[in-house]
């Protein structure tokens, strides 16, 4: 087990190094000189040279890269061109907001998605099953900004139950969390249903019933634990998506999270900030995949012994 985790951690470090390289290269090939962007056209060529020198942009690219990596390793990602705020500080502040939004959406998606999937598998072909399957198709296909606007119009404007933009209270998170969670809920319910259907036809489920166990125990203990493996894969990759990809939701609901920060940085060509958010997203993805892999090993003993000790 320990060997397995150690191995995965080592792989993670390699992936992160690759990500830093790609990020750096991308930032250097995007059109537009950051110094010119900062100073605009009024600056004299001398001033531009001076600033370029101050920012270390006149050094060789390799030196700049190693400087970037060594600073990034110490969690120093530079400062915003415009607000002069350290990128790391902005990311940390925004991360709290994104985390709240993502975890609410995640909780909704997991709780409702798994229970709907299990119930629908158990009543295969019934009315509830059709409802869940139909709902899942809509949930997966509906674009998040559309869902967001529909929610704002119906529950925000017409019924006036929840605020529709900004974050003034906990209630502000309700509509964004639903908008963000709904498609994950849909895909989780589908995967749960499929996985459950496969598991409940297995021989060991018949064995569990032959032992005289109550149906509740058969489903929740014997079936669900086996059915969880594909659900965790999906849920894990979606955790990454939720923490990184709530750009649209945050933008529509004007929630000052990482996603909105990224969109703002793109619009303003705030390269250090953009670089920071890209790096953040990569790290979130890598770490959530790592968490998923490790949790597999806890749930499925076969993986633990196969890859581990």
């Amino acid at each position: 087990m320990a060997t397995y985790i150690l191995k995965r951690l080592l792989q993670t470090v390699i992936v992160l190094w690759g990500v830093s390289l790609v990020t750096f290269v991308l930032m250097n090939v995007v059109p537009g000189d950051p110094v010119l962007l900062m100073l605009e056209k009024r600056a004299t060529p001398e001033a531009v040279e001076r600033i370029r020198h101050e920012m270390g942009l006149d050094r060789p690219k390799t030196t700049q890269y190693f400087d970037f990596v060594s600073k990034a390793a110490r969690l120093d990602l530079g400062r915003s061109y415009f607000t002069k705020e350290p990128v790391m500080t902005a990311l940390t502040r925004r991360f709290g907001v994104t985390l709240r939004l993502a975890s609410s959406a995640y909780a909704i998606a997991l709780l409702l998605g798994i229970s709907a999937g299990v119930a629908s598998a158990l009543q295969r072909g019934g009315a509830f099953d059709s409802l869940v399957r139909g709902g899942a198709v809509i949930g997966i296909s509906a674009p998040v900004f559309w869902v967001a606007i529909i929610l704002q119009m119906s529950f925000g404007l017409r019924l006036g139950w929840f605020p529709i933009s900004g974050i003034r209270s906990d209630w502000s998170f309700v509509l964004p969390a639903i908008a963000l969670g709904i498609r994950y809920m849909a895909s989780i319910s589908r995967v749960t249903r499929t996985s459950m259907l496969e598991v409940i036809s297995q021989d060991y489920i018949r064995t569990a019933r032959a032992k005289g166990l109550a149906e509740r125990v058969v489903i929740l203990k014997h079936a669900l634990k086996n059915a969880l493996i594909p659900i965790i894969t999906l849920a894990g990759s979606e955790l990454g998506n939720l923490l990184a990809g709530s750009m649209l939701t945050e933008w529509v609901f004007a929630i000052p999270g990482i996603g909105k920060l990224m969109v703002d940085s793109i619009l303003m060509r705030d390269l250090p900030m953009l670089q920071g958010t890209v790096l953040y997203i990569a790290v979130v993805f890598v770490l959530s995949n790592l968490t998923v892999d490790i949790s597999y090993a806890f749930i499925d003993p076969r993986i633990r012994y196969l890859k581990g000790d």
Partner: peptide, 11 residues
């Protein structure tokens, strides 16, 4: 049961 390979719960 017939199949000892699949009749026990793997997890």
């Amino acid at each position: 049961f017939q199949e000892p390979m699949t009749s026990l719960n793997p997890v």
